[in-house]
Design a protein around this nucleic acid. Structure first.
Lengths: 170, 170
DNA sequence: TTGACATAGTTAGCTACCTAACTATAATGG
DNA sequence: CCATTATAGTTAGGTAGCTAACTATGTCAA
């Protein structure tokens, strides 16, 4: 996935006015709100990232472990993992390299198709999740509780509308 | 800025139930909503990223050019740019390397303090912005118009509340 | 049955982010 | 006035993402 804007210094209305002189009428509110949404998304993501990093995981690795734990035999393939976590196969190769190096997953050959191999969650990998998840879930609950169920519903609804309309950038 | 989750495969309620067996009561709605918010943030960011990439810019570089254009003399320093765009000085060094290589900015010595130097937006850099910005602003406007002013106001309000509460991850 | 195409994974080389350690210069205070 | 501390920028080495090109294997159809 691409990196996300980290603007600590959003433009104020004055600056946007100056840009408008060059580029014509600008919907100042729309621009400020759009950039703010991107920035808050970054902030939330970084909050989670810091939490995971302090527990020896990073977002990409954490998600791979979770995907493996979902499987009944704790096993999957690089392609499947790449597709489910939404990264390229090349990126997944490197994530697995790091996880295998740390002993959190293990590569296992596949007899039926020699192009493939399997990735299995190890006991150490499960143990790492067992440290993280019982701290993760209550925090998410505590955070989301700041909004009522109806508010959360509406927030998602509106974000989804924006996402659909983000086609304008195509 | 850190990378953001790219989960294409959010857990369903069944899977979260399985996890609950191991980790105790989980607020399934809260977790799904939180992950969805992160994911939509990524999607919006990637939409902008793709738009910029097709015009020869990436988010980090685009923002540096904009920060320079805001200045009356089109000039700033690496430290200032790093602080305003929220990246480390090391990252800014590399962004400037790339921009200077492409001729979009220029490094200029500083007589008064020989540790410093200035970065100035070049004519080519201004031209690049002049290609991008007149296409950027109307698109943002068109996208945000899917929500009423009141809805946008409320969306921001609720996101800000979540951001404040993201302290739970500290 | 073999030649063409498809699939699985890796490698190489790029961007962009980080921290920590480094160099050079400036500022300050005994 | 010089030793310490602070500041500006770079470098080194790490993670995480991408595309494109590659190897190896499997599949399928003429």
């Amino acid at each position: 996935m691409g990196a996300m804007l980290q603007l600590k210094d959003l433009p104020d209305a004055l600056i946007l006015g100056k840009f408008a002189d060059r580029y014509g009428a600008v919907d100042v509110d729309a621009v400020l709100q759009f950039l703010s949404i991107l920035r808050i998304g970054t902030d939330l993501s970084e909050a989670l990232d810091g939490f995971l990093a302090r527990r020896g995981l990073l977002q990409g690795r954490w998600w791979v472990l979770i995907l493996l734990m979902r499987e009944d035999d704790l096993t999957s393939t690089p392609s499947e993992l790449a597709e489910k976590s939404g990264v390229s196969r090349a990126t997944m190769t490197r994530l697995i390299d790091g996880l295998a190096r740390d002993g959190l997953v293990k590569r296992l050959g596949d007899r039926s198709d020699r192009r493939k191999y399997s990735i299995r969650l190890t006991a150490a990998g499960q143990a790492r999740l067992d440290e993280v998840m019982p701290e993760y879930y209550p925090r998410v609950k505590r955070m989301m509780k700041v909004l009522s169920a109806a508010q959360r519903e509406q927030l998602l609804q509106n974000l989804l509308l924006l996402k659909e309309r983000s086609k304008v950038f195509q």
